[in-house]
Design a protein around this nucleic acid. Sequence first.
DNA 1: ACCTTTCTTGAACTGTTGGTCTAAAACGTG
DNA 2: CACGTTTTAGACCAACAGTTCAAGAAAGGT
Lengths: 191, 191
Amino acid sequence: MSRPRRFDDDVVLSRAMEAFWTNGYAGTSPAQLAEATGVSKGSLYNAFSSKRALFEKCLDLYHQQIRELAKGLMDHPGPTRECLAEALRSVVDADLAQPQRRGCLIGNTAVEMAGQDPDIAAKLRRMQDESTGWFAARIERGQREGDVRRDLDPRAFAEHLANTLAGLRVMAMTHEAPVLYRIIDTALAAV
Amino acid sequence: MSRPRRFDDDVVLSRAMEAFWTNGYAGTSPAQLAEATGVSKGSLYNAFSSKRALFEKCLDLYHQQIRELAKGLMDHPGPTRECLAEALRSVVDADLAQPQRRGCLIGNTAVEMAGQDPDIAAKLRRMQDESTGWFAARIERGQREGDVRRDLDPRAFAEHLANTLAGLRVMAMTHEAPVLYRIIDTALAAV
DNA sequence: ACCTTTCTTGAACTGTTGGTCTAAAACGTG
DNA sequence: CACGTTTTAGACCAACAGTTCAAGAAAGGT
């Protein structure tokens, strides 16, 4: 029928996501996106309509990736407290392993765009709430298994954890592992 | 001698700070700065050399303002736990009272620039560490006054509080007061 | 009344931005 | 192997970025 696309949408999306992640939405120009993806500007616009639309697809991809990651981390064997601590530590480790600090794409986008753009704000809000849900589920499981104090409100504590994580990823821009690890331990002391 | 400056450097700086705060460094153009300050682009460059230099002065002003604020908040009468909770709540309230969410200028800048710019990163790091110091001092005072458990590590808990605050200001971009208040209570449960 | 100095202003400048368009090339199909 | 359709690379565009500059304007010192 027609000429097929030479590039794989998913790998292009993934590379574009990396570019947006390290440089921000405004900080990533079409030229940079072309360079990062190896696909020319023209093709990029042909395939994704606009920089904005491409960005939203990148956000979705990011969210899906952390969803997979979270699923794995929350299913790790071991006591609840250690499981949560290990999960947070692994996120921090991943951040610090990067040659350039870049934080969390969702948090970064909240800071950069949520104030001006209610649509993006709502989308980010949904994503963050989903993360909170994963934490809450793990805590409830801990309570069922007798691992976690019964008087702990799972929802409230999950929100606290999500907030701690949001903070960590900002703090990781300027701090090193020991401080961040200590923060994780302190935040989890109540479990 | 020479023609005097028509504007007051401090009010110009303060208005420029507001502009950077709501729109970010890259998101604030010289034209916007001129508009926000009421001073023409040319004069702005004459007085502050470059957008970058102006921004650093704004950062310093911001830090000085929160230093004053923190001094007041940490000296409030009442038990330590309530004092800290009230301090965090007042920051959250101030964020939510704004017509446009804008987070924390230090955190926002960390996210936007720290990855690329080691100088800025170091400066932000110093500012954040100073904030941690204020929390630590208040906790130590609480311990001296018998208000706070002796086995709490003031430094570690202060870092946790600074991290919680950093998180709150990102979460405030997309969440409302009840969630944020609950997070504050949970984070302070150990005091 | 003039001189010097620093200030203000607006225009001008260069590079880049986000985005469009086109002409040529590439492909599956019949 | 020609068809009709798509993709592609790159030229192209107006707008705007950050910055500079020449010209004039307001003070004090002489």
